[in-house]
């Protein structure tokens, strides 16, 4: 009940169904006359019909389309409404799938939240929205009430522009979890419309699975999609080769390692004033005159100032190469240099 009060926030436009457990009573009366004389009115016994709990749910994306993400956040939040469209109160288990669409990328689930602080949008941390843990925080949603769910996601790097990644949020009725142990719409034995669960409804009436669980038209789940927008910079450092001075490739004192810093910009748009830096650890010494960009030699001295922005800074043991502006999808820029093992 605490949850029901907490989440009874949104107004919903769904038609209200008669509450589970209600008794529908029909009674007729009859009047008649015999030889012109009115007789006492007759009342029928009542036909009484119990209202069972129809289990229905509508999960809907709140985002109204693609949610754009751009570097450097690498994070996206998708939001959903979960409405109990049945006629009884029900606990729901929330489940997220991140491997939804063919192609595109798979976002990485960070955390689920339930809107609880009354401030639109996701706020995490102190005073923020409620962190949801499946099986522990399953919300009780009253008939015709809606909760808002936020799905916080990480986005992998190295994405092409306009690439899309989708997740699916499902609201699985607690009755299914309790009675069948199914926790996901794709589980074998997930109930279909018309399935009944005797005595598990509100006020111990039967539960009947409603049409929202129709396999091909299910509203148990909804999909939300992130799209890469704006540039995302990704860099990888690789040791290309080791030369130990004896024709071998052992990493021994005096051996020289060839490093490559490969940078690319993905997504859309471009970045400006891109500078690649790599600080060497104490075990490595820069080999002078080995700095190259895309196979072209660079010198080490940063001179003339203002024109040459590449070199090796001895004070900080850092290789630094200014790339300048770089457009998304323009391919890789490669910086290579060698360092010697001390």
């Amino acid at each position: 009940m605490i949850f029901a009060l907490l989440f009874a926030a949104s107004t919903a436009s769904w038609a209200l169904g008669t509450d589970a457990g209600t008794l529908i009573t029909n009674t007729a009366t009859l009047s008649f006359e015999i030889d012109g004389a009115a007789q006492p009115i007759v009342e029928s016994a009542s036909a009484i019909t119990r209202v069972d709990e129809r289990l229905d749910v509508a999960t809907v994306s709140r985002d109204g389309g693609l949610v754009l993400i751009s570097s450097p956040s690498r994070q996206g939040v998708l939001s959903f409404d979960v409405t109990n469209t049945g006629n009884g109160d029900e606990v729901f288990r929330l489940v997220v799938d991140t491997d939804v669409d063919e192609g595109g990328f798979d976002p990485e689930l960070v955390q689920l939240y339930i809107e609880s602080n009354g401030i639109p949008g996701l706020q995490s941390g102190n005073g923020g929205d409620l962190v949801y843990v499946g099986g522990t925080d399953d919300p009780l949603i009253g008939s015709d009430e809606t909760i808002v769910v936020y799905v916080e996601l990480n986005v992998p790097d190295s994405l092409p522009g306009a690439d899309e990644g989708s997740v699916r949020l499902s609201a699985v009725a607690g009755t299914f979890v309790q009675a069948l142990g199914v926790t996901h719409p794709d589980d074998t034995g997930f109930p279909v419309p018309g399935a009944t669960f005797p005595g598990l409804g509100d006020r111990s009436v039967d539960v009947v699975v409603g049409l929202s669980h129709e396999p091909r038209a299910s509203t148990v789940s909804a999909v939300g999609t992130l799209q890469v927008d704006g540039p995302i910079v990704s860099m990888h450092k690789t040791a290309l080769a080791v030369s130990d001075g004896t024709g071998g490739s052992r990493v021994i004192s005096g051996a020289e390692i060839t490093y490559e810093l490969a940078v690319q910009v993905v997504g859309t748009g471009s970045v400006g004033q891109l500078v690649l830096t790599d600080q060497l650890p104490p075990e490595l010494a820069y080999v002078p005159g080995t700095l190259m960009l895309d196979g072209a030699e660079l010198d080490d001295d940063f001179l003339p100032a203002g024109q040459d922005d590449a070199g090796f800074d001895h004070a900080t043991d850092t290789v630094s190469v200014a790339i300048g502006s770089m457009a998304a999808g323009s391919g890789l820029r490669r910086v290579t240099f060698r360092a010697a093992v001390r």
Partner: peptide
């Protein structure tokens, strides 16, 4: 038992269980 949106048919049956004829046009249900 029923669930919302179900359609119900109610039937009301009246029987003269007495021994006198009920007047024509006098039965009102």
């Amino acid at each position: 038992s029923v669930v919302p949106e179900d359609v119900l048919l109610y039937t009301i049956t009246f029987t003269n269980a007495g021994d006198e004829t009920v007047d024509a046009g006098s039965i009102v249900i």
